[in-house]
């Protein structure tokens, strides 16, 4: 069985380098047009010239006639490619992994992943298929770049949709799932304007802005920021909850964070039951002090 790492033009180069160091793959797969990544330590590079995730997955399924495990990062485009490969080849896909162990003797890969908001830890084994790796779990890079032999696959084809434009401002904020620090706001921040100082603190900590379902439902911030059972699951190094009560639905999306900080005026708010550090105080006062230190 061979292990290939998958990358595309919208992946973060540094994150890719850390993943390829962590996994120690035989080969790499590049999806897209011109390729400008350093492929660390791999012997073989497969280049799929395509902008379609679905067609790329199918192309890869047609290409491989041996047992292969493809490992990608946890962005949505990678997920689409791996899902397409998985069903085209009838091989499994395991997403959200944070542990990867390849035992060359028995030719299997042992994976670990958390499920249900971090309440359960699964250990599983596959001999072929796809793995979507939790970008929080990859280590630093030490492998050297090299010039692999390149196989090109032409995946260019028409798609069933016509792109008009990227929507302005949609990419201004860091994605909550890949950020090391997430600063979240709930009903306690009193209105959409409350997110402005939260963005300042997130910027200072090089983090992303999250939100509870209640404030997303009220239209204070875009759905892409929602954390919880019906939003995104995050596991940052630091999660800061401003004015969030900590309902179980919210906790399901963040309780796997390494360090949890809660700021709330209500000492009985359930968020204090699961935090490492908390301050019972007005969120604005804490935020102002934190930004100014």
């Amino acid at each position: 069985m061979k292990i290939f790492i998958l990358a595309h033009a919208h992946n973060d180069k540094d994150l890719y380098a850390r993943l390829s160091n962590y996994i120690s793959a035989d080969g790499a797969i590049w999806i897209g047009e011109k390729c400008d990544f350093d492929f660390l330590g791999v012997e073989e590079l497969i280049h799929v010239d395509s902008n379609s995730s679905i067609k790329s997955g199918r192309k890869l399924s047609d290409h491989f006639n041996e047992q292969v495990v493809i490992v990608g990062l946890d962005d949505s485009f990678t997920g689409e490619i791996l899902a397409s490969f998985s069903v085209s080849s009838c091989e499994p896909v395991v997403w959200g992994c944070h542990g990867f162990d390849h035992c060359k003797d028995d030719n299997d890969v042992v994976l670990q992943k958390y499920g249900f908001g971090g309440k359960v830890l699964y250990t599983s084994k596959i001999s072929s298929g796809c793995v979507q790796f939790n970008s929080k779990a990859v280590d630093s890079s030490t492998r050297e770049p090299r010039d692999p032999s390149v196989v090109s696959l032409d995946g260019r084809d028409s798609v069933s949709f016509e792109i008009f434009e990227s929507v302005e401002g949609s990419n201004e904020n860091k994605d909550v799932t890949s950020a090391d620090v997430v600063v979240s706001g709930g009903r306690g921040i009193q209105g959409p304007e409350g997110f402005e100082p939260l963005r300042k603190l997130a910027g200072k900590l090089n983090g992303a802005v999250g939100a509870s379902r209640a404030v997303v439902d009220m239209g204070w911030i875009d759905y892409s920021h929602q954390i919880g059972q019906t939003g995104k699951s995050v596991s940052p190094k630091l999660y800061v909850a401003f004015g969030i009560s900590g309902a179980v639905q919210h906790r399901a999306g963040m309780q796997n964070s390494s360090v949890i900080v809660a700021i709330n005026t209500d000492r009985n708010a359930p968020i204090f039951d699961i935090c490492d550090y908390g301050i019972v105080a007005d969120w604005k006062e804490v935020l102002e002090k934190w930004i100014s230190v």
Partner: peptide, 20 residues
Amino acid sequence: RCEILNVENVKKERKNKIWE
């Protein structure tokens, strides 16, 4: 396709240090 080797319930201990 995928063999589950182990399922473990996880309970993370928190420091729970709270200031007023």
